[in-house]
Simulated scan of single mutants.
Amino acid sequence: MFRAARPIFNQTSRAAFRSQFARTSGRRFQSTAAGEGPSAQQQQTWFKRMWESPVGFKTVHFWAPVMKWALVLAGIGDFARPAENLSVTQNAALTATGAIWTRWCFVITPQNYLLAAVNFFLGCVGVAQLTRIALYNASQKKLAEPVEKEVVKS
């Protein structure tokens, strides 16, 4: 008795589930409320789209890169400092951070182009500062060489 009832029960339960699923499946992937067409979606303001975005204003995906721009601005501010006062380890860390996290921004979901941009510029600032340090060190070695040769000759 139970074996005969099982196929009938399976068929009716599947049909009930599918009809319930079919009623909601057309709407579940739409970003607008039911009944609103594509014209309502086009009329959304930029702020509303940004607010509802997975990398929008109410997420860490937006605020982390915004705050990280302070590091880029601090690195740009260091261009005014003499190269002898710059730290190699600090700027190497900025360069490595920029390179690693720029790549990571394209691997994670959601892809965060704002974070990728800030990390790219952070790496660029680090490379520029490391270049300044290397050029300064090379000029100091060139200045020190003739003095040492003259001392040895006399």
Rank of each mutant, 00 (worst) to 15 (best):
S31Y: 02
F47E: 10
P82V: 02
Q20C: 02
T24R: 13
P54F: 04
A92E: 06
T45V: 02
H61Y: 03
V55K: 08
A64R: 10
L71R: 05
S87T: 14
G37E: 13
F21Q: 11
A34T: 12
P54C: 00
T32E: 15
S53H: 15
L86M: 08
A15D: 08
F62E: 05
Q20F: 00
S25W: 03
W46I: 14
R18M: 06
T32H: 12
G35W: 06
K58R: 12
I76P: 11
S13W: 02
V55I: 11
A92I: 03
F57S: 09
N85S: 11
V60C: 07
M50K: 08
P38K: 05
S19F: 01
A83F: 01
A70Q: 05
R28S: 10
V88S: 09
D78A: 09
W51L: 01
T24S: 14
F29M: 12
V55F: 01
G77P: 02
R14Q: 11
G77H: 08
Q11K: 09
V60H: 11
P82E: 13
K58E: 04
G56Y: 01
F21D: 14
S25H: 05
G35C: 07
P38M: 04
E52D: 12
A64W: 03
R14H: 06
S53L: 02
Q43Y: 00
G26K: 13
N85T: 11
T24W: 06
S19C: 03
G75T: 07
M67W: 09
I76A: 15
E84Q: 07
W51V: 06
S53E: 05
S39A: 15
Q30H: 05
V60W: 15
F17Y: 15
N85H: 07
G26R: 13
Q43F: 00
F9T: 05
R14W: 03
S53Q: 04
M50L: 06
S39W: 07
F21G: 01
V55L: 01
W46D: 06
A16P: 00
G77A: 13
E36R: 08
T12L: 14
R27D: 11
K48F: 05
K48S: 15
Q44E: 10
N85M: 03
V60A: 15
L73N: 02
W46K: 05
T12A: 14
Q41P: 00
F29G: 13
A83R: 05
L86S: 08
Q30L: 09
F79S: 04
A70R: 04
R27V: 10
A40M: 01
A15G: 00
A64M: 12
N91F: 12
V72H: 06
S39Q: 15
E52R: 12
Q44F: 00
E84R: 10
V88A: 12
S13L: 14
P82N: 11
V60E: 12
N10R: 03
H61D: 13
W63D: 11
K58D: 06
R28I: 15
W51E: 10
Q44K: 09
I8L: 14
G56L: 02
A40L: 03
L86Y: 03
T89C: 01
V60Y: 12
F79A: 08
G37L: 04
L86K: 14
T12D: 09
N91P: 02
P65L: 03
T24H: 14
S13G: 01
S19K: 08
